[in-house]
């Protein structure tokens, strides 16, 4: 339903690119996540999809028709795309009911529809309040209700949980995506939190410096990352360089890079590749412990373990199925 072809955008006349040759597609009913550090171009990408920015090259097709290109631009108000802004952007001078009916002023039963979506986001009896009278989490849900009211074909959420504290965040994340699944709307959300993406997205896109570096299902992205960058984005990763390879006596293809996830490095268990190590320092992290180790060949490495009782000398190891291989 959404096709993006080699889209590029520069804000300084071609000196640098916010986005460069990004292409991807989304199927109807999917939930997609765009993941990247700040400055990676993720907000630019969704603003391009929304029609709020204009591409310097490339095309965007939405529901089979061309909406953005170098020749043509369908304005945002004609796209039937809902957008929930990072700062919610509720109209401060309007009551909640008027905020929600804002986009459906031509609908026949707009009041009823507004109440319906407010029910959907689990807000009752707040219609006559003003946005500043609500908590952050409530404002977020009103913003969602307002975006859903006109029945958009696509819903975009820009950093939807970044303004909330950790506890509320997890709770609201599940609630919001339950609602999205319930309505069956196609959705894209932007996040710099990989946990958000892994938990709720069907499809994940990784952006780095304006380029799309990988698009995959969550499980595949975690187990088969295409680059060291993607691998380390989703958890602690240990690079298997030459020194480590010799310590574990596991020769790997010298043409490629290799890495292993921290949790796959096990302590005092039998594995294909093992080595002995001396614990130089152990730092208590709460639910885990960071160990600075010196391996038999003198090489040093840090690992994180959930083991509570660690002796001074340990055996560590991993299995070949857990080794991730990248072409570069």
């Amino acid at each position: 339903m959404l096709q993006i072809k080699e889209i590029s955008k520069s804000f300084d006349g071609g000196k640098s690119y916010a986005l460069r040759d990004v292409s991807f597609g989304m199927e109807k009913g999917d939930v997609g996540a765009i993941v990247g550090e700040s400055g990676s171009g993720k907000t630019t990408l969704i603003r391009l999809i929304a029609g709020l920015e204009r591409p310097d090259a490339g095309e965007i097709y939405f529901q089979g028709s061309l909406v953005s290109s170098i020749h043509k631009l369908v304005p945002p108000e004609k796209r039937k795309i809902g957008l929930v802004f990072q700062e919610y952007a509720l109209f401060p001078h309007l009551r909640l009911i008027d905020n929600v009916t804002y986009g459906i002023s031509r609908m026949k039963n707009k009041k009823a529809r507004a109440r319906e979506v407010l029910e959907l986001v689990d807000l009752h009896g707040v219609e006559d309040r003003y946005p500043h009278q609500l908590s952050g989490g409530q404002q977020q849900r009103v913003a969602l209700a307002r975006a859903l009211a006109p029945n958009p074909e696509l819903l975009i959420l820009d950093e939807p949980f970044s303004n909330l504290d950790a506890v509320l965040r997890a709770q609201l994340r599940n609630q919001v995506f339950e609602i999205i699944k319930k309505t069956g709307v196609t959705a894209i959300f932007v996040t710099h939190d990989t946990q958000d993406a892994l938990t709720v997205a069907d499809e994940i896109l990784i952006l780095k410096d304006g380029s799309l570096i990988q698009q995959d299902r969550a499980f595949k992205l975690y187990t088969q990352p295409k680059s060291m960058y993607v691998a380390s984005l989703f958890g602690n990763t240990i690079m298997l360089d030459k020194a480590l390879q010799s310590a574990f006596e596991c020769p790997l293809n010298p043409q490629c890079c290799h890495a292993i996830r921290n949790e796959n490095l096990t302590i005092n268990t039998d594995c294909e590749y093992v080595t002995h190590a001396k614990v130089l320092k152990s730092t208590f992290l709460g639910n885990s412990t960071q160990l600075d180790l010196q391996l038999e060949n003198g090489h040093r490495v840090s690992v994180i373990t959930h083991e509570r009782h660690i002796e001074d000398h340990i055996k560590i190891g991993f299995n070949s199925k857990d080794v991730m291989e990248f072409s570069s």
Binding site: L52, E77, I81, L83, F85, Y102, G103, R146, A147
Partner: peptide
């Protein structure tokens, strides 16, 4: 921007 996204 959010007003425009709501079709206005």
């Amino acid at each position: 921007d959010s007003s425009k996204m709501l079709g206005v």
